[in-house]
Nucleic acid binder design. Sequence first.
DNA 1: TAGTTGACCGGAA
DNA 2: ATTCCGGCCAACT
Length: 86
Amino acid sequence: MKSFSDKVRDIVRKIPKGRTMTYKEVARKAGNPNAARAVGAVMRMNYDESIPCHRVIASDGGMRGYNRGGEARKRQRLIEEGALRA
DNA sequence: TAGTTGACCGGAA
DNA sequence: ATTCCGGCCAACT
């Protein structure tokens, strides 16, 4: 049995390029539709480049924080991938 | 075991 | 549209 955080990491890693997922969506796929907060907690603790955490955004389409680069960098990256304002 | 914290979400003012 | 408040979950102390 994989832990919730493990599922979240796996799901986020499976997010295709040019596509963004909200914390709530990821939480729902992880098995807990209301665990959006826990998803954010996992992202904060996780520092793996293999996980496109920048493709995970808030339900408002904005971002609350980022580990490296900053929010502006994250948004820029999404636009560059065509996931935002394509 | 219990209390606190935080990359959240939805509704109300 | 912006700001405030309560609620859910997992991890940390």
